[in-house]
Structures are given as structure tokens and as C-alpha cells.
Amino acid sequence: MPKLPDIVRNPLAFIAARWTPSPALVRRAVLAALVMSVVIVVTGGAVRVTASGLGCPTWPTCSGDSLLGTRAMGVHHAIEISNRMLTYVLCATVGWAIIAIRAQAPLRRGVYRLAWAQFWVVVLNAVWGGLTVLTKLNPYVVSFHFLLSAALITVAALTWHRIGEGDASPRPLVGKPVRQLGQVLVAASAVLIVVGTLVSGAGPHPGESTGSYKVQRIDVDWRTVAQLHADFAWVVVGLTVALWFVLRAVDAPVGPQHRVRDLFLVLMGQGVIGYVQYFTHLPAALVDLHMFGACLVWIAVLRVLLSFRERPCAEPGASVPSAAAAPARISL
């Protein structure tokens, strides 16, 4: 049997042997994947608040045997199919990040695994998104769809942070009690997001309002759940303020203090949006903006936790492949 060319057997290794991206290019590629992971949440929210969730009534096709459907299916179809097509853009940006990280010299295996984790979460979430259609927008399935998006943002944000670090063992910048308080903040923020999905699942935006199908809702008063959501929001704000005072008291480095300050500002903006949308009876545009704010809050929380330690930008004695040991590489 003839031997397959290298580019077919291992295309990523083939590219890595001939091209070395600059650190700035790699960081931009990873940032693009993070940005797209937020964009797909915002466009998915737009599908829901515009009642376009069943604009394509089947999956993986849009309608019958048609992958894209037709213009005659109306504006809800256009919104839904646009969100589906953005999944391919997300896959492309994650794929570009994987290629750029793989082509770095030397290969950073931990970061490379994180990049691949993004890809598999994207695949899982795309399949789960199809399940939301097949279950006719079951609110629990839809809620988990958002949580998978939060998982994607988590991995993307961690990859973005790690690409700016070295691979030496992490060194703590703050004491153990401060780190534990940060972990409590992360846990409270995670609960806040989960409760937020319940508000959405019980609220007045089921995702489909054409009258062709009655979408199931979570059988609780959405105002009661919204109050619980607001209570957890204040818990997160309180923990953030407490953490800021503790960091000031122990004279922590400015990095963690700035990250906590950033989180507080994002929380304030998100709180204003949340209360305005509640008292204006959840207008669609504000609901979608609130989902965008939730993404920013989660990223800011993760950045706080990650700021509590540092890794050197380069490990002493790290080996770099010599030019004689590999084919000629193009550096950009």
C-alpha cells in the first residue's frame, strides 16, 4: 500500500514544520475564538427573544431535505439559519487557533489541549442545539444549551490567559484565604448563571410565538425566580467588594486588584441592565443585552481567579527545535 503524503497523514504537523506564527498572531487567533464564543451566545439569544427558535423546524436540516430552507419561510427562518451558519464561523476561528498554537515552536502541549477542548465543546453544543429544536425548545434543554456555551467561554478564556503565560509551575501571588474567597466568588457566580437560565426558562420569551406549537415552560413564577437571581447577584457583588477590601488590606499586587475592580464595574453595568429589563417587562433587546453582560461577568470572574497566580513567560532550559532538525519554517 503506498505511503500517504505527510500533509494527509498529519496536516497540523506538516504546517507546524514549515511555518512559525508570531506570538502576537497566536494571541489574536485565540482572542478571536473567545470573541466568537461570546458572539454565538448573543446571536443565540437573539433567536430566542425574536421567537425564531423554530424558524428551522428540523435538524440537522432546516426543513425537510433542505439544509438552508427558503426565503419564503420568513424572517424567523432567516434569524435562525443565520445563527446556525455562525456556528461554522465559530468552528473556523477555533480551528485557526488550534493551527496557530500547534505551529508555535516549541509546542505547548497544555495550551494545545485547551484549544482542542474548545473544538469538542463547540461540537457538543452544536449537537445539543439541534436537540433543542428536536425537543421543540424544551426549557431545560435550552438552559443546558446556554450552560454549554458558558463552558466554551470558560475554556476559551483560559486558553487566552494561558497563551500569555509560560509553562513553569504557577506561583501564588496572594495567600490561601484570599484564593479561597476567590473560589467562593466563582461558585456564587456559577450559581447566579444557573439561576439566570431558570429565569429565562420560566419567563415570557419561550423562543417561538407563531402559534404553530405551544412551547413548554418551567412551571414556576418567573418573577419569583428573578428575585432569587437578583439575590444571588447581590451576593456576588458583596463578595467582589469584600475581595477588593481584602486585597487592599494585604497589600496584594496591582494585577488582582485591577481584575476585581474590572469585575465590579461589569457587575454594576449588568445590574443596571437587569433591573431596567425587569421593570420594563423584559423587552427583547435588553434581554439579549443582559445575556451579553452575563458572558462579560463570567469572563471577568475567571480573570479574577487567574490573576491570583503567575507563571514565568519562559521556562529556563526550554528546548527549541534547531533548523537542522526540521524543514525550513516561515516565521510571521
Rank of each mutant, 00 (worst) to 15 (best):
P5H: 08
Y112R: 12
V287K: 08
S169G: 01
S82K: 02
D231E: 08
M85I: 12
T132R: 06
L67D: 05
G201N: 13
L198Q: 10
C56P: 12
V301L: 11
W120D: 10
V111P: 06
V111H: 12
R179F: 00
A103S: 15
L332M: 06
L68V: 13
V47F: 06
W128Y: 06
P204W: 11
E310Q: 10
P316S: 02
I98N: 05
I7S: 11
A150C: 04
G207P: 11
V89C: 07
S52V: 08
I79T: 01
P321H: 03
R171V: 13
V41S: 04
G69C: 10
A202E: 14
V225A: 12
T87E: 03
G274P: 01
I330P: 01
L86I: 03
A126D: 07
A285K: 00
V174S: 05
R48K: 09
C313P: 01
L228F: 09
Q270G: 06
A103D: 07
L305Q: 12
V304N: 07
L198Y: 10
M1D: 11
T58C: 06
A29E: 08
A323G: 02
H161I: 00
P316L: 04
M291R: 03
T20Q: 00
V94I: 15
F14Q: 01
F144C: 05
V215H: 12
S209F: 03
V111E: 15
V26E: 09
A157M: 12
L239A: 04
I163Q: 14
V35C: 11
S307T: 02
L31P: 00
T154S: 14
A168H: 00
L332G: 01
K3I: 09
V276F: 06
A157G: 06
V127N: 08
A249Y: 02
A24F: 05
V174Q: 05
K3F: 03
S307Y: 07
V191I: 13
L90I: 00
A24D: 13
F292R: 03
H77D: 09
G269H: 07
T70K: 14
E315W: 01
Q257F: 00
S143T: 04
T154L: 15
S37R: 03
